[in-house]
Simulated assay, not measured.
Amino acid sequence: MSEAKTQENGLAVLAILIEAGEEINQGYGSIFNYLGHIRYAGQKVAIPAFDIKLLLPDNLSQYFRYNGSLTTPPCHQSVLWIIFNERVKISHSQLMKLQTVLYSSKEEEAEPMALQDNYRTTQPLNHRTVLSSFIPVSVKIYTAGEIAAIVIGSLCGCIGLAVIICFIVKTIRLTSSWDVLPSIRPAPQPRLQDMAKESKEDVALKTTTNPTKPEEAAPQPET
């Protein structure tokens, strides 16, 4: 182990995601039942043999794989991680035992320190490639044609929406203009009959004047 962890791809880790439920997991019970014998750091206990397949999910064909590191110092970059997609369930009581029974301090220490929240924070990907033995259901793989269709459809939808908005704005403005027009409408013009009557009166007045009366000569300027 000490030699393998310093070599590239020297270690392989099978990782399983655990989910708490109502049913007690008998496979993990083979380990959890002995936690009381190793409560403090440095203690050891012998566990009777059991089938380790009981610790693994039923479907072992779906997994993720990537090159990573150890989760504890000095965190050598020598681990081939294999994370199974299917989760394993344990009971809430088993989870509580795992969280409260163990201590990270030694037995002789006055104030024991619970073995909790000792996980390593998420690290940058560092250009790693995560491989998958299957196509995840939540991931949709699109072809180049489908991507082009989605882009063109989105553009057409945006253009259509813009046209509709412009039409609505113009309609609102036109309606508002018609509402304002009556208040600024000019006064009504005289009717044609009134205009004709006024023209006849002008003609009558002109005919009553003396046509034989000579027009007065305009005074000549003195020389």
Rank of each mutant, 00 (worst) to 15 (best):
residue 10 G to I: 03
residue 172 I to F: 07
residue 203 V to I: 12
residue 14 L to N: 03
residue 81 W to P: 02
residue 53 K to Q: 08
residue 112 P to Q: 11
residue 163 V to P: 01
residue 151 V to C: 10
residue 141 I to S: 11
residue 114 A to M: 09
residue 64 F to S: 08
residue 74 P to T: 07
residue 61 S to G: 00
residue 86 E to H: 07
residue 217 A to P: 02
residue 127 H to S: 13
residue 103 Y to I: 00
residue 65 R to D: 05
residue 172 I to C: 08
residue 108 E to G: 10
residue 32 F to L: 14
residue 7 Q to W: 02
residue 54 L to K: 15
residue 105 S to V: 02
residue 117 D to E: 10
residue 87 R to M: 09
residue 54 L to Q: 14
residue 220 Q to G: 09
residue 82 I to S: 02
residue 130 V to E: 07
residue 32 F to M: 10
residue 48 P to S: 13
residue 156 C to V: 14
residue 221 P to S: 13
residue 144 A to H: 04
residue 202 D to Q: 12
residue 125 L to P: 00
residue 103 Y to V: 03
residue 57 P to D: 03
residue 75 C to E: 00
residue 39 R to S: 07
residue 195 M to L: 13
residue 222 E to C: 13
residue 97 K to A: 04
residue 117 D to K: 11
residue 44 K to L: 11
residue 178 W to L: 15
residue 112 P to R: 02
residue 160 G to F: 01
residue 56 L to T: 02
residue 103 Y to H: 01
residue 205 L to N: 07
residue 201 E to Q: 09
residue 43 Q to K: 10
residue 74 P to I: 05
residue 171 T to E: 08
residue 177 S to A: 13
residue 4 A to L: 09
residue 214 P to Y: 00
residue 77 Q to D: 09
residue 121 T to A: 08
residue 209 T to H: 01
residue 169 V to L: 10
residue 44 K to G: 00
residue 84 F to A: 03
residue 14 L to A: 03
residue 212 T to K: 03
residue 196 A to D: 06
residue 60 L to G: 03
residue 88 V to N: 06
residue 74 P to A: 08
residue 103 Y to T: 05
residue 173 R to M: 12
residue 167 F to H: 11
residue 175 T to G: 13
residue 43 Q to R: 10
residue 68 G to Y: 01
residue 93 S to C: 01
residue 205 L to K: 01
residue 161 L to Q: 06
residue 11 L to I: 14
residue 85 N to Q: 15
residue 4 A to G: 06
residue 153 G to N: 14
residue 42 G to W: 00
residue 196 A to Q: 11
residue 141 I to R: 14
residue 14 L to Q: 00
residue 204 A to S: 05
residue 202 D to P: 04
residue 49 A to V: 09
residue 221 P to Q: 12
residue 149 A to M: 07
residue 39 R to P: 00
residue 222 E to F: 06
residue 73 P to R: 09
residue 193 Q to W: 04
residue 3 E to W: 12
residue 25 N to L: 03
residue 205 L to Q: 08
residue 127 H to N: 15
residue 60 L to P: 05
residue 201 E to Y: 05
residue 19 E to N: 12
residue 147 I to H: 07
residue 116 Q to I: 06
residue 40 Y to A: 00
residue 1 M to C: 11
residue 159 I to E: 08
residue 66 Y to N: 05
residue 59 N to I: 10
residue 132 S to P: 02
residue 59 N to M: 06
residue 189 Q to E: 15
residue 179 D to N: 13
residue 161 L to T: 11
residue 119 Y to G: 13
residue 58 D to F: 00
residue 203 V to N: 08
residue 108 E to Y: 08
